[in-house]
Design a protein around this nucleic acid. Sequence first.
DNA 1: TGTAATCATTATCTTTTGTTAACGTTTTCT
DNA 2: AGAAAACGTTAACAAAAGATAATGATTACA
Lengths: 200, 200
Amino acid sequence: MDKQSQLAAFRKGITQFVTFSDTEWEIFSTYLSFSSLNKKEHFAVEGKVCDYMAFITRGAVRYYHIKDGQEITGYFSFENELMSAYKSFVKRTPNRNYIQALEETELVMISYQHLQQMLNHPLLALKMERFGRLIAEYYICCYEDRVTAFITQSPEERYTALEKTACDIFQRVPQHFIANFLGITPVSLSRIRKRTLLQH
Amino acid sequence: MDKQSQLAAFRKGITQFVTFSDTEWEIFSTYLSFSSLNKKEHFAVEGKVCDYMAFITRGAVRYYHIKDGQEITGYFSFENELMSAYKSFVKRTPNRNYIQALEETELVMISYQHLQQMLNHPLLALKMERFGRLIAEYYICCYEDRVTAFITQSPEERYTALEKTACDIFQRVPQHFIANFLGITPVSLSRIRKRTLLQH
DNA sequence: TGTAATCATTATCTTTTGTTAACGTTTTCT
DNA sequence: AGAAAACGTTAACAAAAGATAATGATTACA
């Protein structure tokens, strides 16, 4: 995808948070950069401070931890979504997990440094503060739902809910990653799938 | 506690996010109000839009859902912490859970309406946007850790971790609420406690 | 193209959790 | 002070999940 299309996709994708005037966008877009990830390439790794947040124009990534030498996938992001090792990015602390491309992935990126420059730019500051706030609020709402699911639902209920709200994910992501995401083992997810199939 | 002390506690408590000049604080504090909750009184209930966010100067609350007629406690907040049905408050949607005082609780409150006024107030806007952003970022980090715990740890590991990081919670909150918070049943938590005691 | 790696399923066994109920203790409230 | 409610523990059983290993099938890639 060419850069103009990527920029356009980005501009459209963030209208749920802020809309930039043409003048503002002209300034804003000078702070952006582009990058791409090959399949299995990492956007962020454990131990390093994450210096970028990115908008995915094409592709998909997974977030995973390593515990006792085992990879445990906690989340996914797809095209038209924002991605970052959020805590590391905003707090400037070493990241504690990995973000890896599941497919060929294209990104529009904002570096931490550029973000700070924009937050100090008289013509952008207020809008950027708001942008940051609304993004954060958006993700809080996602997290709220996710924690609620762990508290109030069984693994089977979480699986059924996921199948309802995002069944396309099963076509796109290996099942054992989804199992981790649901908080269970791949073997257990396979059993749940069989169980729920037989029920209908 | 008298209002001046409460205001002082609030001002101090939010220094981790923003520091107000005396002039700013004078304006800011005119938008605040005070309230208190008796034990078991609700700050937020299911189905209603939450109109306030609050700083707890004294006391404690629990957040709970009702599923199949059963209360399931998902979170707690204590003195010197901010509290709100966040998603409902920022999105103006009906709240999906309850927030109830565990003890006599005193609050400094900001109404949604007043917050909007401050966000439009020329002398406060930028700082309030930043305040909102930093609060949201703070809670995202909390949520990140919480979700990671559900993904990577067993119930027993979550219990042990909680005992290490916040063992005082067991003196203050009924154990069956903590069980819910850990994602297990009260019976199971009782067993885990016995098990881990015997191991040492 | 052919070999290796990845992946989902299944089976077996163990461990843990959920469910229900009972019991005694403590707390609450009138 | 006394009755009722709330609470933590324990027991017994059922259900579910974890661990490990084996088996095909598919995919990746050299």
